[in-house]
Write a protein that binds this DNA or RNA. Sequence first.
DNA 1: GTTTGTGAATGAGTTCACAGCA
DNA 2: TGCTGTGAACTCATTCACAAAC
Lengths: 208, 208
Amino acid sequence: MTANPVIPEAAVARLAAYLRVLTECQAEESRHVSSAFIGAQAGVSPDQVRKDLSYFGEFGRPGVGYDLEQLRGQLARIMRLNRVQVAVLVGAGSLGSALARYPGFAQRGFRVAAVFDLDPQRVGTRIGEIGVEHVGQLRQRTTELGATIGIIAVPRSACQSVATALAAAGVKAILNFAPAKIRVPDGVNVRSVDLARELECLAYYLPG
Amino acid sequence: MTANPVIPEAAVARLAAYLRVLTECQAEESRHVSSAFIGAQAGVSPDQVRKDLSYFGEFGRPGVGYDLEQLRGQLARIMRLNRVQVAVLVGAGSLGSALARYPGFAQRGFRVAAVFDLDPQRVGTRIGEIGVEHVGQLRQRTTELGATIGIIAVPRSACQSVATALAAAGVKAILNFAPAKIRVPDGVNVRSVDLARELECLAYYLPG
DNA sequence: GTTTGTGAATGAGTTCACAGCA
DNA sequence: TGCTGTGAACTCATTCACAAAC
């Protein structure tokens, strides 16, 4: 099993965590790692680690563990993180600007190649290295750049039209920070992060 | 059943979504809403809506639906969102600054009452209404403000010590944006949002 | 006829437990 | 002995289906 099967979405997130563990301990630990080690670092049981990996093949050796470098390569391949993925970002407000600057994206192999906004006051300004372009440029520039990922950091009221535009521009994945469900054509994958929702979930568990 | 039972974590997130639906359609729709309506708005099946609500009591009337205003009140009570929850934020970098300004928090009943940073360059500056204080003030100010929630927007290397300090200051919930698992004492609830992880999960589903 | 509340059935995901290889 | 890979058991969540209420 080495093609990408249907696996639980939670498993996908865990695989990303395993990859991060391997990337971190690279060169500093020994040549092999066990499922117990990976699990301890990622906060997951060893069983779970082995099960998740087994969806994709047999990467380990009984009695030995996993070859650190090789497993890292396999996971990067599985997660499509063995090449830089190009993203475009829509919305240059405070959240959008912070995302454009976020160093974690580049560190993990994502390049935010363009930022778009509707507001003439923002168009033409710079966020770090990136110039803010008018959202009217979105389609052409996204195609030019070969971006596969769109990031939405606009107000709720604008998010659906932005999502539609991104899909039309050929983006295959969308990360949406507006607090609304968006509809997209088949073949486009959406994840939403609702920052206030996160706090709301925490509030439920507060005492008193 | 009106005390808060143990329910699936996913159900907690859905309840927050239902509350948002009710808040939005308030006054604009009719006096009653059905599980079908709530579900359609929230992207959930009517069955699921009724099951989720039934964990906490019987709020509806067969053949009629739920009283909009009354259900809104009940959900707000269940989610602890019927009073303003005070949060403190640690880390005044670009992400922290964006979070401090994020209008969605105030709109949903959260007040970011203080911002802390270690960097003397940032201490004393203002982010909107809020002055940035030195992280050494964290414990005293958090107690003073009666904050129940801490938000971590510092680099990975600092996140564990910040989490420990927040817990010591009496915070009962932590929203962590650093890409690392943090350990906290019993009684403190943590949620983590790893922005790069979100993109990583999307990358898995990319074609090619 | 409409819509709720819920026990029962189904389904998905995790944990167990052990055979087999190093 | 140490550790992997995996079918089987189990646990948890969602969906179904229907009796009761309006």
